[in-house]
Amino acid sequence: MASLGFKSSPHDHALFVQHTSRGSILLLLYVDDMVITGDDRPGISKLKHYLGQQFETKDLGQLSYFLGLEVTSDTSGYYLSQAKYATDLLSRAGLTDTKVVTTPLEINAKFDAGDGTPLQNPTLYRQLVGSLIYLTVTRHDIAHAVHIVGPST
Score class of each variant (00 low, 15 high):
A83V: 01
L28A: 08
S64C: 05
A113P: 15
A86L: 06
S24P: 03
A143M: 04
A14T: 15
D59M: 04
K110Q: 15
R92D: 05
L128C: 05
V101R: 06
S8I: 06
T57R: 03
T98M: 14
G116Y: 05
I25S: 04
L90H: 04
D112Q: 10
S152E: 09
Y134W: 02
H140D: 00
D33G: 00
T96G: 08
Y85A: 03
Y125S: 07
I25G: 01
Q18M: 11
L15H: 09
V17S: 06
E70R: 00
T98N: 11
I148C: 11
A86E: 03
G61T: 09
G38P: 04
T153L: 10
Q18C: 07
D40S: 07
T136C: 07
A14Q: 09
L69V: 02
D115F: 05
L63N: 12
L51I: 01
F55G: 13
M1V: 09
S152I: 10
N121Q: 07
A2V: 12
V100A: 15
S91A: 11
G52C: 10
Q53H: 05
S81L: 06
Y125D: 03
Y125P: 02
Q62G: 00
L132T: 13
T57V: 13
D39W: 09
D12Y: 12
D141N: 08
K46H: 14
Y30K: 10
Y134D: 04
D32C: 06
A109Q: 15
K7D: 11
H140A: 03
G150K: 03
L95T: 00
K58I: 06
E56Q: 15
D74R: 00
R41V: 11
M34K: 04
L15Y: 10
H49G: 12
E56C: 12
S24E: 08
V149L: 13
A143Y: 04
K58H: 14
Q54R: 13
K7N: 13
P151A: 13
A93D: 06
I133H: 10
L89D: 02
Y79L: 06
L27Y: 03
S8H: 08
Y78R: 00
L60Y: 06
L67M: 14
G43P: 05
S21N: 11
L26M: 08
S131A: 12
T123A: 14
D74G: 01
I133S: 04
I142T: 07
V137D: 05
I148L: 08
D39L: 10
K48R: 05
H147P: 04
L4I: 05
H13M: 07
D112P: 07
V17W: 07
L29E: 10
T138G: 00
D59V: 02
D88H: 01
G52E: 10
E106R: 02
